[in-house]
Computed example of a mutant assay.
Amino acid sequence: MSKRDSGIRRRLTDLEAVSTVLDYVNSSESGLQEKALHLVLNLSLDDDNKVGLVAEGVIEKVVSALRCGDGDLRAVAATVLTNLAVVEVNKITIGSYGMRKKAATALFTLCSFPDNWVRAVQNNAVSRGGGGRVKW
């Protein structure tokens, strides 16, 4: 329901459910982890939620899911980061999170999906070096 109804997303945010949902993003139970991450994804659809999610600490949780999750979970996590990066202040937070290696890992993971790879090249995040190799 949160995917299609912005009113439900707004209610969840108003009820301060975000911190509770974030507790489950890195759950050891994969089904619960996936549901929580999908809910975060749905909440990130609303521009009004994007900064609040980052303020709640979503970046650390999502990056962890990128590193440790399976393919589907990593895809959802990458989409969350992409949604959150629409807001300028979030780009700074996402880019400065942790060390360069973590940022490069997130970018590498995002680029494992062909459409994201094209966007990364178009936006000069990565380029093709000599011999068709990736230049970071």
Rank of each mutant, 00 (worst) to 15 (best):
S2T: 09
S2G: 08
S2V: 06
S2N: 07
K3W: 05
R4Q: 05
S6P: 12
S6T: 12
G7S: 15
G7C: 14
I8F: 11
R10M: 15
R11G: 14
L12C: 15
L12Y: 13
T13E: 14
D14Y: 15
E16W: 07
E16D: 15
A17Y: 07
A17E: 06
V18K: 03
V18S: 04
S19Y: 10
S19D: 12
T20I: 11
V21R: 01
L22T: 02
L22M: 11
Y24S: 07
Y24W: 05
N26T: 15
S27Y: 08
S27C: 08
S28Y: 05
E29G: 03
S30R: 08
G31S: 04
E34I: 05
E34F: 08
A36K: 05
L37R: 01
L37V: 06
H38S: 08
L39E: 03
V40D: 01
V40P: 00
V40A: 10
L41N: 07
S44R: 00
S44I: 05
S44C: 11
S44H: 01
L45V: 09
L45K: 06
D46A: 15
D47E: 10
D47Q: 11
V51Q: 07
L53W: 03
L53C: 11
V54G: 05
G57F: 06
I59D: 12
I59E: 13
I59F: 11
V62E: 01
V63G: 00
S64K: 14
S64C: 13
A65P: 00
L66I: 12
D70Q: 14
D72H: 04
R74S: 11
R74H: 05
V76S: 00
V76A: 00
A78S: 15
A78N: 00
T79E: 11
T79L: 02
V80P: 00
V80A: 08
L81I: 13
T82A: 13
T82K: 05
T82Q: 09
L84M: 09
V86E: 03
V86A: 05
V87R: 02
N90H: 02
N90I: 01
I92C: 03
I92E: 05
I92P: 01
T93N: 08
G95A: 07
S96N: 10
S96Y: 09
G98V: 10
G98C: 11
M99F: 10
R100N: 11
K102H: 14
K102T: 13
A103I: 10
A104I: 12
A104D: 13
A104H: 14
A104V: 13
A106T: 13
T109N: 01
L110S: 07
C111G: 09
S112F: 04
F113P: 00
P114F: 01
W117S: 04
R119F: 12
A120M: 07
A120D: 01
A120H: 02
V121R: 06
V121N: 00
Q122Y: 09
Q122H: 12
N124I: 04
N124L: 06
N124A: 09
V126D: 01
S127F: 01
G130T: 13
G130Q: 11
G131D: 09
G131F: 03
R133W: 08
R133P: 00
V134N: 00
K135T: 07
K135G: 03
K135D: 04
W136L: 08
W136R: 05
W136H: 04
W136P: 07
